[in-house]
């Protein structure tokens, strides 16, 4: 088996929960689907609007569709072996615990800071051992080297940690994709920790 086959074998039994299917969630889910995460649980209540297409992994002909259904459709086109479980729901503490307690890793992919705070507090209080990967600060353009990953116990922060999205500083595909890619990369490293042995000099850390 080559390394990617070994990776696929490990990932095929893993479950990742993604809270939110906007710019972070859709791009992160697609990256995880490509490499073969076995089960991806997605949740969102929103409908695709034209303004979402500047960064979210949807197509023009999907405008008006539920994000969860459209994302499931898109993932199935990319990798039909992935099992996508989609919940059309506005997440709160209770539903996060219900839907994601069986996941190996949870991805925070909300847009609003209040929702990011809610999921972090929920996981810290009720599932402190569960790895949670968050996206924090990815609006604007340029300044690629400010994007980084920080670890606080089982919580990982991906992004520049400073730029708030606003009318003046919108979230756009390039930097949102970097943050979503960092989230997916962190998830992958957590899932592969102690699973893949490579001989030689290559070694990797989670962050």
């Amino acid at each position: 088996m080559n390394t990617f086959e070994k990776i696929q074998k490990v990932l095929s039994s893993k479950i990742v929960g993604i809270a939110g299917c906007g710019g972070l969630g859709s791009n992160c889910a697609v990256a995880l689907a490509r490499i073969g995460v076995g089960t991806i649980i997605i949740a969102d209540f929103d409908v695709i609007e034209e303004s979402n297409l500047n960064r979210q992994y949807y197509f023009y002909n999907q405008i008006g569709k539920k994000k969860t259904l459209a994302l499931k459709e898109n993932i199935e086109k990319i990798n039909p072996k992935v099992r996508v479980v989609a919940y059309d729901i506005k997440l709160d503490s209770k539903s996060i615990l219900n839907l994601f307690s069986g996941c190996d890793v949870i991805v925070e992919a909300f847009d609003k800071a209040e929702m990011k705070q809610m999921i972090i507090e929920t996981i810290m209080t009720d599932m402190p051992e569960k790895p949670l990967v968050c996206g924090v600060g990815m609006a604007g353009w340029g300044d690629s080297n400010s994007m980084h990953v920080r670890q606080f116990g089982n919580i990982f922060f991906c992004g520049d940690g400073k730029t708030e999205a606003s009318e003046k500083i919108p979230p756009l595909a390039p930097r949102v994709s970097i943050a979503a890619g960092m989230e997916a990369n962190t998830v992958l490293a957590i899932l592969l920790k102690d699973e893949i042995e490579l001989s030689g000099s290559y070694s990797t850390t989670i962050i």
Binding site: G25, A113, K116, G135, F152, T163, A165, P171, A179
Partner: peptide, 10 residues
């Protein structure tokens, strides 16, 4: 002590 600063965007 951990202080996490959150901002909108995603």
């Amino acid at each position: 002590v951990t202080v996490l600063h959150l901002m909108s965007g995603g």
